[in-house]
């Protein structure tokens, strides 16, 4: 079984964020970059499925140069090869453009002309948190989508997924190829072993730019974005209101506060 995992490099949530005043995009130089947490679960699931079916796992990442570190991490976990789409013109891409680039990379020669059985993504990137890319990618590829999976089963012809929904859970099924996105409940991602880290250094990573994908710079990045940030403001940090120590009447004091705000 041939599997592609889409992984995104994101700023570490624990670090302070800044937006560039020039173009209102995230100042990615100012923060530590890590693999999107949810994507570790996607890589793990891909590896487990590949181990069961004697398959191959390709990691696909769109992002600046330092994204190589995230691809290497996936390779050191056990993925077989990487595709890195990097181009200055991609800076500021919206989800519509991101999905177009990922779809084009899958269709390219390095992407084996789209000959994949499964495309696995995280269900959400921790920086923008839009959860748009999996559904958009499925739409572009004309493939079934099985999103928010907490369990994935496949017999090589079909895939069945147990998925979390807003109101409970579903079991859904489709033929292959298909697009799957996973939630963190699905597995326990492995840590790269020393051997894995050494092996990763020799695994192939192809680097593609927009020209290689036959895409026009005007269609992607901030220039091609179909939504535009007009303005942004740093929200004033919340400040501590009143703090009281419970001397046996904390609950009563609290209810007086709630009443003063008309909340009870």
């Amino acid at each position: 079984m041939k599997i592609v995992v889409c992984v995104k490099q994101v700023p570490d949530t624990a670090s302070e964020k800044a937006l560039r005043s020039e173009d209102s995009t995230l100042d990615r130089d100012a923060v530590d970059a890590v693999m999107n947490e949810m994507d570790e679960f996607a890589v793990e699931e891909a590896l487990q499925l590949a181990e069961r079916t004697d398959g191959e796992v390709t990691v696909l990442l769109m992002g600046p140069d330092q994204g190589t570190e995230t691809i290497r991490k996936a390779l050191s976990m056990g993925a077989h090869k990487g595709i890195h789409v990097v181009d200055d013109a991609l800076h500021g891409s919206d989800a519509v453009a991101t999905s177009a680039v990922l779809a084009a990379a899958l269709a390219s020669e390095e992407g084996a002309g789209g000959a994949y059985d499964l495309i696995i993504l995280g269900s959400e990137a921790s920086d923008a948190r839009t959860s748009l890319v999996p559904a958009m990618l499925a739409e572009r590829l004309g493939l079934p989508q099985l999103t928010f999976a907490q369990k994935v089963d496949t017999d090589g012809a079909n895939v069945t997924v147990e998925r979390l929904t807003d109101y409970g859970h579903d079991v859904v099924t489709s033929g292959l190829p298909a697009v799957v996105s996973v939630v963190e409940k699905i597995n326990e991602p492995r840590y790269p072993s020393f051997k894995g880290i050494m092996a990763a250094k020799k695994k192939p990573v192809s680097t593609l730019d927009l020209g290689d994908l036959g895409l026009d710079a005007a269609e992607v990045g901030a220039a091609g974005a179909w939504s535009k940030v007009e303005d942004f403001a740093v929200r004033p940090p919340r400040t501590t209101g009143e703090l009281v120590k419970d001397e046996g009447d904390g609950g009563k004091q609290l209810v007086s506060f709630l009443a003063s705000r008309k909340l009870v």
Binding site: P237, R238, T239, T240, G241, E242, L243, V244, K245, D246, G250, G251, Q253, L254, F257, R261
Partner: peptide, 12 residues
């Protein structure tokens, strides 16, 4: 958590 509260009770 107390850095962002409108009202906080320090207690059990």
């Amino acid at each position: 958590i107390f850095d962002l509260v409108d009202y906080g009770v320090v207690g059990d």
